[in-house]
Amino acid sequence: MTISQVGAIPLSKGIKMSTVGGKQTTSGTALIKRGFAHMQKHGVIMDVTNVEQAQIAEDAGAVAVMVLDKLPFDVRSAGGVARTASVKVIQAVIDSVSIPIMAKCRIGHFSEANILEEIGVDMIDESEVLSPADEIRHIWKWNYTTPFVNGAKNLGEALRRIDEGAAMIRTKGEPGTGDVSQAVTHIRMVNNEIGKLKGIYDNKDDQELIRTSRELQSSLEIVKETGRLGRLPVVNFAAGGISTPADAALLMNLGCDGIFVGSGIFKAEDPLERAKAVVIATTYHDDPQTVLEAQKMIDEKKSMLGLDTKNLDLRMQERGPKI
């Protein structure tokens, strides 16, 4: 198989079987959920708050849109509690674009997740951009037919989320800041830890594998599979602070499978051109000449000013359950 299914829980609640035209069909399997995430690869998923932005994103080559009530930058300035977006807005976006629709729910808030699944979003982001609803547990994502994406700032977090059923991982970064440094830190952290784990796996050192699994607070099964593959068993995207084509290229060159752009596009003054430019730079990230062409499409004077990640009142990456 080209997609790892290790760690999948065979008869979980999210798996639905039916008979269509005399054939048995199965929905919500790890292959179908992780497979959906694989179709997003090399693409750019864009945060939007309304139909107009969703259409701009689709026209600019977004591979999917993520519907929020407020862009992460505005979540920071508004303060208060950030919750899942209005049902009306999500439904209107579903009716207006042909690409996949994702939406965020609060960490641990399985009732918001249930609502998003009922509406019919294509992927649910259990996101630290919203105010966490549970400080102890994340959502048990095997209960859903709809695939989930979760943030992670290190390998242990990523593997625990996969253990819980996440079909896709993204770096946490520090959303809404326009500063990629945290996303870079997180992907480097994950890459270094995987490198180390692969060494242990290749040495066939079972004791060290078990010790590592305890250290990572993740199941041995998923730890072993990650060591064997030398990468996360699910698709891993970059998120948090990406604002320019060069930012997108940087994170792709560090080994990410694709890009999430939050405030970077619609908090800039040139959203359509910038969105297109980020899409081009993501595909041709390893070709400096084409990335230059993309970078020429934007004007730095129109980039979001951003926030200094060292002096933030709210560090979103630190929110939610510790394990």
């Binding site: 269509v20 054939k23 048995q24 069909t25 199965t26 929905s27 919500g28 399997t29 292959l31 179908i32 497979g35 959906f36 579903i94 042909s98 996949p100 699944e117 019919g120 979003v121 294509d122 992927m123 037919t145 709809t146 695939p147």
Partner: peptide, 16 residues
Amino acid sequence: ERNSFGRQFDSFESNI
């Protein structure tokens, strides 16, 4: 016809 079998919730595997 794009998305002919529905959205991701309806995505499926089956012998064909």
